[in-house]
Design a protein around this nucleic acid. Structure first.
Lengths: 208, 208, 208, 208
DNA sequence: TATGAATGAGTCTTCATTCAT
DNA sequence: CATGAATGAAGACTCATTCAT
C-alpha cells in the first residue's frame, strides 16, 4: 500500500489528477488494479488519502523546523522552509493537482493544513517581537504561498531563470520576515547596485 | 461566439480543464454542441484560443498601467496591479487550469505572456533607480506570482481571512518595490503593533 | 448541377462513399451546400442519381460499340471494350463505391445495367456464330467483370505489373471471345514461349 | 475473441467497413463494446487483424491446393480454387471492403497476399510447361481476380444466373489454364451448340 | 483474499440536414 | 430561389469500477 501511495504521488505529480488512470497508478506500483481498489474504494478517496498522507509529511517537516526554530536566524529559517518543498517536490506537485481537482477535501486534510499554518504562526511569533496572533496567521499564509511559488520553479526549464527566481524569492522572504531589514541593508549594500541581494548580507545581524 | 468564450472562461474557472465537458460549455452558453465545434475544432483549440483571449485582456490591462505608471506612487502601482486580477477573476482562474493542462500553448499566448512580463519590467525599471535589466525581469516574475496569490484569495470563503491576506499581500508588494521603505516605516509605525501595516503609511514619502 | 455531379463523381472515386461529406462535394463543385440539397434531397439520392448518370454514359459507350461492332475484329472489340472503362475511369471507380454502399439502387439504374448487358449480348451474338441467347447473356456478365478487373488496374502502383495485367486481360478476353483461338495460336506462336501473347497474333485471322 | 472476429467478418461482409459500427460488431458477438476494445484498440486495428486472419485462412487453403496440385488435372485445380472462396464466402466479402477502406494494411497482410500469389505461381509453373516466372505471376493475379468474380456471384439473387455464371467462369478458367484446350474442345463440342461447356469435356486429355 | 478481464456510462467529435435570412 | 450557419443524433473510444475465479 505504501508502494501504491508513492506511485500515485509520482504519477499525479507528473500528469495531473484527471490525466492519470487508476490502471496506470497500479501498474506504476507493480500492483494489480484489484489491490488498488482493495485499499481505496475509488479514485477520489485515493486522492484524499494521498492528500492526507502528503499533508502529514509536510506537517512533520514543519514540526521539525518548529523544533529547531528557536536557534535559527531568519535566513536559516527561510532556507529551512524552502528546503521543505524542495525535499517534497513530487508531494507538492501532486497536492497541487489534487486540491485543484477535488471539490471537497476530507476534514483530516483540512486539519493538517491548519496545523501546518499554526506551526508556522508559532515560529513567526517566536521570531518577530510584538507580532499579534492574527497577523502571524496571515503572515503564515503568505509565507506558505511564497514557498509554493518557489517550489513551482522546479518546472522552469531555463536554469538561469530558475536560479534567479529562487534567489529572489529567498530575498523576498527574508525581507518579509525581517524586522528593520532595510536599515541593515542600507548599511550592507550602500552601493545601491540593487543586484539580487543575498539574504545573509541583509540580515546577518538579526540573529536570535 | 463571444457567449461561448465567456461561458468557457466561467466553466473552466470553476471546474478546471479536464473536468469540464464540451457539452457543458455549450449548454452554459445556451448553444448546441454543434455551434461550439463550428468555432473551435476541438477542446484543445478552444482552450488555446481562450488563453490567447485572456492574455490579450491582461496585456491590455498591463499596457494601461504602464501608461499611467510614471505618475504612480508605489502603493498606487500595487493597487493598480492587484486591481487587474481582481477585475479579471474568472479569466485568471481559467488561465491557470488551461496552462496547467495544455502541454503546449500557442506561440501567440507565449508572446503575450512575455509581453506582459516586459511591460512590468519596464515599469519597475522606471520605478526603481539603478535597477538592472536582469533583476527587473526576475522581479517581474515575482510580482506576477504575488498578483496570482492575491487573485487566488477570491476562493477564500472567510471574508476576514481574505481581507487580511489581501492587505498583507499589498503590504508585501509595497515592501518589495520600495526603496528604503523600512526606514520610513520604522518612523511611521514605531509603536510596534506590527498590525498589518497599510502601504501608504509606509511609503507616502516615496512619491515619484 | 452538372458541375455538382461531376464533382461528386470525382470525390466519390477518390475517397469512397462514406468518406465523402456533402460539404466536400459542394465545395469541390464551387457551390454552396444549399444548392446541393436543392437538387438532391439527401446523400443517398445523390448517389443514386449519380449511379444513373454514370450508367447512362456507360450505356452510351456500349451503344457506340454496338454500332461499330459489325465491322470489328475480336481484338478490336476487346480494345474498344477496355477503352470504355479506361475513358470512364472516375465514373467506374465512383460506381464501384456507390454500388457497394447503397443497399438498394433505383429501378432506372437497374434498367440501364440490364440495357448494357443486352447490348453486349447482341454484340456477342453477332460475333460468335451459333451462340445461344442464354449463353450470350452469361458471357456478357463475364466480359463486364473482366472489364472491371482491367479498369481496376489503374490503382496498381507498379507500372510493370499494371501493363502486364492489362496485356494479360486483353489476351484472356480475346481467348474467351474467339472461336478456335488456340488452333490459330498454335500456328502463330509455335515456339511455345508462352510469353504473354498479344491478342492480334492469336486472332488476326478471325476478322469478321 | 474468436466470436468477436467471426461477428466482425460477418458484419463487414454484409455492410462494408464504414457502414458498420463498433457497437454493432460487439452486439453481433453478444459482447459489450468494452470487450471489443479490450482486444482491438480501434476500428482500424480490428480491420487489419481481421484481414490478417482472413489472409492466413486463404493462404492455408492455397497451401493445401499447392500440396495436392501435382496430382490435379486442370479442371480439378479450377474446382479446388473455386472451392476455396466458396468456402470462405464471408471472409472474401469482408476482405474486399477492408482492403478498399483501409489506406494502409499491415506488412503481415501484404506478406500473406504475396505468399498466396507465389503459391499460385508455383502451381501454374508446375501445370504449364515452358511458362516463364514473370508470366506465371501475372497469370496468378488474373486467376485470383477470376476467383473473386466467382465468389462475388454469391450475391446474385437469381439462382439460374448464379449457376450459369459459375459454370461459365469455371469454363473460362479452364480455357485460360489449358494448353491446347481449344483443339480438344473443337473436337469435343463439334455440334456447335456453344452451350456453356463443361471444363471436363474440354480438358480431359490434359491429365498431368 | 487477490486478480485482472469484463462492463457500459460518458466523452469528444462529425456531418447530414434544415431553415432563417 | 439561394445561402451557409446552426443543429443534434450518432459513432469511436476511454476508463472507473466490478466481480467471477
Amino acid at each position: 500500500m505504501a508502494a501504491l501511495l508513492e506511485a500515485a504521488i509520482k504519477v499525479f505529480a507528473e500528469k495531473g489528477y484527471d490525466a492519470v488512470t487508476m490502471t496506470e497508478i497500479a501498474a506504476r506500483a507493480g500492483a494489480p488494479i484489484g489491490s488498488l481498489y482493495q485499499f481505496f474504494p475509488n479514485k477520489e478517496t485515493l486522492a484524499d488519502v494521498l492528500l492526507v498522507r502528503i499533508s502529514e509529511r509536510m506537517d512533520e517537516a514543519f514540526r521539525e523546523i518548529e523544533e529547531r526554530s528557536p536557534a535559527l536566524t531568519v535566513p536559516e529559517l527561510v532556507d529551512a522552509l524552502l528546503g521543505v518543498l524542495e525535499q517534497l517536490q513530487d508531494e507538492r506537485a501532486a497536492a497541487a493537482t489534487l486540491i485543484e481537482s477535488l471539490q471537497e477535501t476530507s476534514t483530516r486534510a483540512a486539519e493538517l493544513r491548519l496545523s501546518r499554518r499554526r506551526r508556522l504562526s508559532r515560529i513567526l511569533l517566536g521570531l518577530i517581537e510584538g507580532l499579534s496572533q492574527a497577523r502571524a496567521e496571515t503572515m503564515s499564509l503568505v509565507v506558505i504561498q511564497l514557498m509554493k511559488i518557489a517550489a513551482a520553479q522546479s518546472a522552469e526549464p531555463d536554469p538561469t531563470v530558475r536560479q534567479g527566481m529562487l534567489r529572489e524569492l529567498r530575498y523576498l522572504m527574508c525581507l518579509y520576515l525581517n524586522e528593520k531589514p532595510l536599515r541593515t541593508r542600507s548599511v550592507d549594500t550602500p552601493e545601491g547596485s540593487l543586484e539580487s541581494p543575498g539574504c545573509d548580507e541583509i540580515t546577518d545581524t538579526s540573529k536570535r
